[in-house]
Design a protein around this nucleic acid. Structure first.
Length: 240
DNA sequence: AAATCACCCAACCGCCCGGCG
DNA sequence: CCGCCGGGCGGTTGGGTGATT
């Protein structure tokens, strides 16, 4: 990324040439927060000007929505959230903002990043497309049961529910997705799912677990319609 | 200890849509 | 109807950083 103190492009007005790009400074964050606190959000271009920020309106909006908003929830994606993302993506595809509406405090950008860095990575490791039957089977019979198991375990110990984590909370890469794709410790409808491996080294067990899967006879077209309902699971388990 | 790799995610980009004059 | 502008969205990039060699 080429960070520029000012964009120099012929034909631009001097004000536009002064626009900053790249990472936001603490001072800029404070200016934006204070201005929005005092005047509210919206009309981002004029907001940026009036606040004295040398940023585009778009940049201000993005910074506010994805980072500075007080209700933005940062930190690890919980198993409950992972489950919900899987289902909602199944239902709506890459409609990140729509999905984000169902995950309070999570931004579309965060969910999109989660999907691209975690889910797509595993599809790639399995050498299949996320829309393929193979990946759907992996999700339904390996991934989802594992998530549900983690949710249950967390509910039992009271450890699964994380409090709001607030801006600035550092995340641990090894924890952020953790073991969502690591093998189940006990068989849970997916016997011989593999032996224990460390997180991050899961493509092997997934691949072999998939090979060992005996899939029930069911209509694959049902996948997108009524595969599983997170709400049902939560209601059933009183997890939410 | 240094170099390299892999991953995460903040930020940007381009496109699209709706409202308004 | 048309053009402009603000705002929203999905896709992409690349810097930072921890892990590995």
């Amino acid at each position: 990324m080429e960070f520029q103190e000012g964009i120099s492009s012929t034909g631009l007005q001097s004000e536009e040439m002064d626009l900053r790009r790249g990472p936001w400074t603490v001072e800029e964050d404070l200016v934006l927060m204070n201005y929005i606190t005092a005047h509210g959000e919206g009309r981002w271009n004029s907001l940026a000007r009036c606040a004295g920020l040398r940023r585009t309106g778009k940049s201000c909006r993005l910074r506010w929505l994805n980072y500075l908003r007080p209700d933005v929830r940062r930190g690890n994606i919980t198993p409950e959230e992972q489950l919900l993302i899987l289902e909602l993506h199944c239902r709506w595809g890459n409609r990140w903002s729509k999905i984000a509406q169902h995950l309070p405090g999570r931004t579309d950008n965060e969910i999109k990043n989660y999907w691209r860095t975690r889910v797509l990575k595993h599809a790639k490791q399995l050498k299949c497309d996320v829309d393929s039957k193979k990946f759907r089977d992996v999700m339904r019979y390996l991934w989802v049961p594992r998530l549900v198991e983690r949710i249950r375990a967390g509910a039992a110990t009271g450890a699964s529910k994380e409090p709001g984590l607030g801006p600035g909370k550092p995340t641990s890469p090894s924890d952020s997705f953790g073991m969502e794709l690591s093998p189940p410790p006990v068989s849970d409808g997916c016997e011989d799912a593999g032996v224990a491996t460390v997180a991050g080294d899961d493509s092997g067990w997934l691949e072999s677990a998939y090979d060992d899967l005996v899939l029930p006879d069911f209509d694959q077209s049902m996948w997108t319609e009524n595969l599983w309902s997170v709400e049902d699971i939560w209601a059933q388990e009183q997890l939410w």
